[in-house]
Design a protein around this nucleic acid. Structure first.
Lengths: 237, 237
DNA sequence: GTATAATTGATTGCATACAATTTCGCCACC
DNA sequence: GGTGGCGAAATTGTATGCAATCAATTATAC
């Protein structure tokens, strides 16, 4: 990897690593993210960390408070609900677009991803969550719209963060069957059904999740970030 | 204004100034934004400029290319269309929420804003565009959802940017009557009509606008940025 | 013992410096 | 006139340094 590509990737890689860590619940809502510690962990100066944190703040995954540093965001219950509601609106568009652009390859890719989800069904919950989120991101990619992809991705991660805060244990377990049903409707070119199923799926995830608000405190266990940071330091993806 | 508040505002103020300058077509698509020049103009070091640019890049208003600096984004025609389509989905939610939260003050505020739009009808186009965009942002504020507000604002500015690139002159002129109709439907509590009108309004703006692609080149006239930068340097809003 | 003030260490905000990269201007050659 | 090469200037990427602020600990007063 050329030096220029490596350097280009570093801030992006740090941001991506932190996004994944948040989605997979290594970094929990309210957790503080000290610049120095992150810099040491990732092997860069505070400059790149600050850049990365600015990006994540813009995406709503963290909060920056003047003189108080960065913290993983703690969305309110209302915000959580609004995110899911907004997400259903956007996924409507995604479904319509995917069906419009339908090719056999699309179904193949979705089924391959579903197989990964099935395989991970009894793995640790963070992996299931990541794959479930990635299903939606893949779908948005297949929609062929960079605009839709950007918002599906951002809101997908933000919804994942709300689930960290408000989900009951294993409350995301039934998603695989719902993903399968969506794929089947897509394969039939049945846009209405696919949209209904997607809407139902997202509402179900939200309904199953947002019943309790068992909030975590401002904890700081950056050691768990090591696998993510190591990949960045090593220049990997 | 205390020093801490001033410093807190500076990056935010720079970002806001640049957003406004983009919306009001002082900064056009493709225009380069050199850090040093912006820093001099705003009276800060490159540090704050880079922070601000990172934020605007996350919002899709500018593009950052490694080793090539920042440039006002040039959305493709497809991206423009997708942004408007996405916007209709989100505004549906906004309308529903506003009606759900309806108070007489809401209509009063909207009508006051409409009066400003009427007053500016024959002013310079940038002002009309700003007020038209702010109508939607006000509506989203009145929806009472920080989540919806964030996305309405971001996508509103991005749509404004696409209009800079693709709008025919005065093609946004008929918006006032449409805004008025929306307000009337809201006042009646007629959610379906209000949503239809909003959808029609946004589709009309997009249809009127996206017929030509008269693209501008990579120009650099930072002098026009002076009023925006001066306000930031002086610590104003 | 409790509350408050002072001190100390940690962290953040942001300018500056330096290396790397890109851009521009000039010159030579075809 | 057009193209390519070279060097200088401009710009970007990013670390470092220093002042300001905050958080935690210690000292003091009641």
């Amino acid at each position: 990897m050329k030096a220029s590509n490596k350097a280009k990737h570093r801030t992006d890689m740090i941001s991506a690593a932190l996004r994944s860590a948040i989605l997979e619940r290594v970094l929990m809502p309210g957790m503080k993210l000290p610049e120095d510690s992150l810099g040491e962990r990732f092997g860069v100066s505070r400059t790149l960390i600050r850049q990365s944190l600015e990006r994540l703040a813009a995406e709503g995954l963290i909060e920056l408070r003047r003189n108080k540093g960065a913290m993983v965001a703690k969305p309110s219950l209302e915000e959580a609900r609004d995110l899911f509601e907004l997400r259903t609106q956007i996924e409507d568009l995604v479904i319509s677009r995917v069906i419009k652009n339908m090719t056999p390859d699309i179904i193949t890719e979705l089924e391959a991803h579903l197989a990964k989800e099935v395989e991970a069904e009894h793995a640790a919950e963070p992996k299931s969550i990541r794959l479930a989120t990635e299903f939606h991101i893949l779908l948005a990619k297949l929609a062929g719209s960079p605009v839709l992809l950007r918002y599906v991705e951002e809101i997908g991660y933000r919804c994942g963060l709300t689930l960290s805060l408000y989900a009951r244990p294993h409350s995301t377990d039934c998603g695989i069957a719902e993903h399968r049903q969506i794929i089947e409707a897509l394969a039939k070119g049945d846009a209405d059904t696919a949209r209904d199923l997607m809407r139902h799926h997202l509402n179900a995830v939200a309904d199953r999740a947002l019943f309790t608000s068992d909030e975590g405190g401002p904890l700081l266990y950056l050691d768990a970030l090591e696998p993510y940071a190591k990949k960045v330091r090593d220049g990997g993806a």
